[in-house]
Write a protein that binds this DNA or RNA. Structure first.
Length: 619
DNA sequence: CATTTCGTCAAT
DNA sequence: ATTGACCA
């Protein structure tokens, strides 16, 4: 296919050549067109000054200037305070001078031993850690309202205060309902289902949305609305309008019921929706018609585009010594490909208003959960680590157990510890996290403490750590088989509490299983030996071989071994074994030459080019 | 221009 | 398993 822009500078009109595609009955009748759908409509909706709005709701404040403080820094400024010229980068003192009646709210904090975070007037970064949990909870209320208000839309949580919403499906439904003749291919249609749709009706753009202007109106007296309404309507414009109505309704509901104002951008794809969402703020929404894309995009600094704000955008700016989208339009695709490889097509298309990325519905549960602390005074002694690890562990415990109130079957697969000083200097250790139902501060702190030793243990002398974080990764809702094993592993015997009825013959007693369910039928024939995974008990050298059928459970068993290793108790091994045996009775017991022990115990690792001694600066 | 505390994904 | 890029 010929791309006309290969000739430098010439074919500007054809840089944006897909703004008014022919839409046929096939397009409107066919579902699952995905990103190729010429009637695709995507919105980006984000909360205005979200943290500040959360505090206003919490404190019952309306309209008063307010900032949210995190230690000495302002992290959120509500719109009334912005009227005084206050921004996130001002010092608190400057902000107070600009607005003496400014309300100042410090984010919730807690210290070691606190049951939960709280709001305090006097906070001390040397002893306390920030908790952003209140904002997470409020955020999930907002997302619930998106879901309830837009049951047919795909919704992708993009951050704590932002969601992409794919309106294509609900808009299609509304289109066919409002204009039923679209579903009837006329008898005299020349090309049947491939006949273009009749011209769209005239519509009122309404008053709930702003419109991005279609012509540069710098020296024009007409308003944005006039210049944007002047272009002839397309069916895509009708689709945008229908989405705007739905978006507006949900936004009003959220503002009324939760007290959070939002702003939204509505366009044909994700990156354009994100861009135009901030066209007017707060509490407004903006429609970007296809015809308005060129004049909106060309003067734009390309580093403001999502994913061009980092290294790639810098590389582009440096390579061509330019800053706007229009500056890059003459660059042929081949040149991008030579210089930017994989990203070339994506960049080339983005510059032309094309974005193939899909709105991907995400699990309501985050895949990771981390607690982090920046220390203004560095840790210098290895023994100082465990204190902060306990603080971080307490938060993780609180948050995980809170999440489990909604979803009891949530399990974190690994625990990771990061530590470092300054930028780009972090090191980390991670290990499988023990599979227990009782995720207590002690369990997390013990596992975290092990990681800490692994990370800094072989440094002799002084360390320097200004940043430390502890987090779960691989958080998932387990299936029933894992739940049954988990509840077994949480039985008192496994968790270390002695119980009256110990098992006989290595087999657990019935009573221990009254809360577990049998979920897997036996495989009809056992698998061959070469496909099994073996575990050997360090103490008695008994080896357990698991068939591939138990792939998922062997994963769980791995966690059981982690627990055993952590507690230095070999008895857990045998409990794990008996569970496996019960679930798959042909699990083999092997005696004889000991195979290599497979445990999740962290192996001592060779220090790489950026050695640990170099990394943790001696002082 | 920036801090801190998040979170996701990909390369190796 | 570890590191880093990027987002807000």
């Amino acid at each position: 296919m010929m791309i006309p822009t290969h000739q430098k500078g010439k074919n500007k009109a054809q840089d944006f050549d897909d703004l008014d595609p022919v839409i046929t009955y096939r397009h409107i009748l066919q579902t699952n067109l995905g990103i190729k759908d010429p009637l695709r409509v995507v919105a980006l909706c984000d909360s205005d000054a979200f943290y500040a709005a959360c505090e206003m709701v919490r404190l019952g404040v309306t309209d008063k200037p307010l900032v949210v403080l995190q230690w000495e820094g302002i992290i959120a400024v509500n719109y009334p305070a912005r009227k005084f010229g206050i921004s996130r980068f001002h010092k608190l003192k400057d902000a107070k001078e600009r607005c003496p009646e400014l309300m100042i709210v410090h984010v919730a904090t807690y210290k070691e031993g606190d049951a939960e975070p709280g709001y305090w007037d006097n906070v001390d970064s040397r002893t306390h850690k920030v908790s952003l949990d209140y904002y997470r909870r409020e955020s999930s209320k907002v997302f619930s309202m998106f879901k309830e208000g837009l049951p047919d839309a795909e919704i992708e949580k993009a951050s704590i205060d932002e969601a992409f919403i794919d309106f294509t499906k609900p808009v299609r439904q509304a289109l066919l309902q409002r204009y039923p003749y679209l579903s009837q291919i006329p008898a005299d249609a020349p090309n049947g289902v491939d006949t273009p749709l009749p011209p769209p009706p005239l519509i009122d753009w309404g008053t709930d949305s702003h419109l991005i202007p279609i012509y540069s109106n710098a020296d024009s007296e007409s308003t944005d609305e006039e210049t944007s309404q002047s272009a002839p309507l397309t069916w895509h414009d009708i689709a945008l309008r229908l989405a705007a109505e739905m978006m507006h309704k949900v936004r009003v509901d959220i503002a009324t019921q939760l007290g959070y104002t939002t702003s939204a951008g509505i366009a044909r794809n994700k990156f354009l929706a994100k861009l135009c969402a901030s066209y007017r703020k707060p509490y407004s929404q903006t429609i970007l018609r296809n015809q308005a894309i060129p004049c909106y995009l060309k003067p734009l600094e390309f580093q403001k585009i999502r994913f061009l704000g980092g290294k790639l955008g810098q590389a582009l700016a440096k390579e061509y010594d330019v800053s706007t989208v229009a500056d890059l339009l003459p660059v042929p695709l081949e040149e991008f490909q030579a210089k930017f490889g994989e990203s070339a097509i994506w960049v080339y298309e983005i510059l032309r208003g094309i974005d193939r990325s899909e709105v991907k519905e995400k699990s309501p549960v985050n895949k990771s959960m981390l607690a982090a602390k920046a220390l203004q005074k560095p840790i210098t002694k290895i023994d100082d680590g465990p204190h902060w690890i306990r603080v971080l562990a307490a938060e993780l415990s609180l948050r995980l157990n809170d999440a489990r109130k909604e979803r009891p079957n949530l399990w974190p697969k690994t625990l990771a510890l990061h530590a470092g000083h300054g930028y780009g200097t972090a090191r980390s250790k991670q290990a499988p996290f023990p599979f227990t139902k009782e995720v207590t501060v002690n369990v997390i702190a013990a596992a975290g403490g092990k990681l800490w030793k692994e990370l800094v243990g072989n440094v002799t002398g002084t360390i320097k750590v200004t940043y430390i974080s502890l987090g779960f990764t691989g958080i998932e809702a387990t299936d029933a088989s894992q739940q049954s094993i988990a509840s077994f592993l949480d039985s008192p015997a496994v968790t270390g509490v002695k119980r009256p009825n110990e098992e006989k013959n290595g087999k657990p007693s019935k009573s221990r299983h009254r809360n577990t369910q049998r979920v897997r039928s036996r495989p009809s024939s056992p698998s061959a030996d070469q496909n099994t995974t073996s575990f050997t008990c360090l103490e008695c050298h008994k080896t357990l071989s698991l068939s591939p059928k138990l792939l998922s459970t062997s994963d769980v068993l791995g966690q059981a071994y982690a627990l055993a290793a952590m507690k230095d108790e070999h008895s857990d091994f045998h409990f794990a074994e008996s569970v496996a045996r019960e679930m798959e009775p042909e699990v083999k017991e092997v005696r004889g030459p000991h195979k290599k022990v497979k445990t999740p115990k962290i192996q001592e690792k060779e220090i790489g080019p950026r050695g640990i001694e170099k990394f943790f600066n001696r002082t």
